[in-house]
Design a protein around this nucleic acid. Structure first.
Lengths: 227, 227
DNA sequence: CCGGATGAAAATATCGATTATTTATAGATC
DNA sequence: GATCTATAAATAATCGATATTTTCATCCGG
């Protein structure tokens, strides 16, 4: 379903690998928002040819991480308060819908996956020392949120949610780089998971909304400060 | 904003042109759902090289019109009752949200654009004799629906709506190919436009939902018959 | 001193050919 | 007779090079 882990069976094509590396670089903030992506330089940097690079960028474009303009190449999508507001707003609406559906359709296997994802997330530390540990947390965090809605039976909606989640992750990682989280995020995750498994739909939606909007407000504050 | 008419200023690149032609072929149903897209054959058919073709397909992939699998090439996205159900459901939810926002933010210029789009649409005939006239209606119809939500100030949401609209258009054009519309579609369009301009948000949302769901039900019926 | 034309440099878009992978086929083995 | 394996054909992925387009610094005229 996901754009990210499409086919672990067949050997990943160079394009797919490259897209992953570039996505990481953008989400991590290594590639600055708005900066121009000079194809030849990246090509040289990654030691690949232009064809797979162009295709990888095309995929990232569909995820909204880069923008292309005919005859003028690619650039990393710029950030703005308005864009962030929209991303948060859409996350709340779409993930809310997905959560309701998942609660409706989820079975025991799904509950198991949610519990497992929550547990694995809890074993990672957020403000990790090493880059590597941070990446591990990010991956688990993304996986947890994806699992919550994995039973919604709406593949398109799941994809929209994933895209939006990546977008807001980028903001968080760029602007909340070395902010100690001011709140008990693990507890929030646990509460959301519990509400979902116990089929308390309205509460789950509310908790998720507060979780998302709280992060959004923190980023907005940092963003205003960063201007 | 749109993926379709990105930059009329700079000369459209081959890729962009090609993507448009392929999109037309898929929406029109010329390329059968689920059918394999053999790159070399298309390449020969359109008289282009592989690079722009691959990139064009990549764009269509982000619109959900084709699917790619690593090392196994592209195929036209298959159709299914479940997928159609999801598309309709998401259109209702997302366009509903967009309509509310557009009513909130729309100004006189926007009202003018809506009236204009409605008028232009009304000058086209739906069950047109010629292919060309049919294409003209399709374009105006798409433009009308896009204009309704053009004032919503949520570019991402607009893009989602456009994608979903294309998807449901494909179903309609394939499965309702030569169905005389059983209802007064022009009147429905006029009613939606009026409700929006007069800022009757709830009514506009309701009318749009009924408009979309009615079409959805008709397609579902035809789809069941076509199995 | 400023604004628009000019041309060199940089970057992008496209091509044709090469390499790697998958799919289909035929043969061998159980 | 069915299944596995090796081979061949088809197809996709990638590359290096060429053709266009844009950008930017420069020069000329006002």
């Amino acid at each position: 379903m996901s754009l990210r882990d499409a086919t672990p069976a067949s050997p990943a094509t160079l394009t797919t690998t490259l897209a992953g590396r570039l996505r990481g670089a953008i989400l991590r903030g290594d590639l600055e928002p708005g900066s121009k992506l000079v194809l030849d330089r990246i090509r040289a940097g990654f030691g690949v040819s232009l064809s797979p690079l162009r295709e990888a960028l095309c995929r990232l474009e569909s995820e909204g991480l880069v923008e292309a303009e005919d005859q003028r190449g690619y650039r990393v999508s710029p950030v703005s308060a308005d864009n962030l507001t929209e991303v948060i707003r859409l996350r709340v609406e779409l993930e809310g819908m997905a959560v309701r559906e998942a609660i409706l359709h989820g079975d025991a296997a799904w509950e198991g996956r949610v519990v497992s994802a929550l547990h694995q997330l809890s074993r990672c530390v957020r403000g990790a020392r090493s880059e590597e540990e941070q990446e591990a947390w990010e991956a688990r965090h993304r996986a947890f949120h994806a699992e919550l809605i994995s039973a919604c039976r709406m593949p398109l909606l799941q994809q929209f949610c994933e895209t939006l989640h990546d977008q807001s992750d980028r903001y968080r990682r760029i602007f909340l780089k070395d902010h100690a989280p001011d709140r008990d995020v693990p507890a929030e995750h646990a509460a959301i998971a519990a509400a979902m498994i116990e089929r308390r739909a309205e509460e789950a939606v509310r908790l998720l909304r507060e979780h998302v909007e709280r992060t959004g407000r923190n980023i907005q504050a940092a963003l205003r400060g960063a201007v």
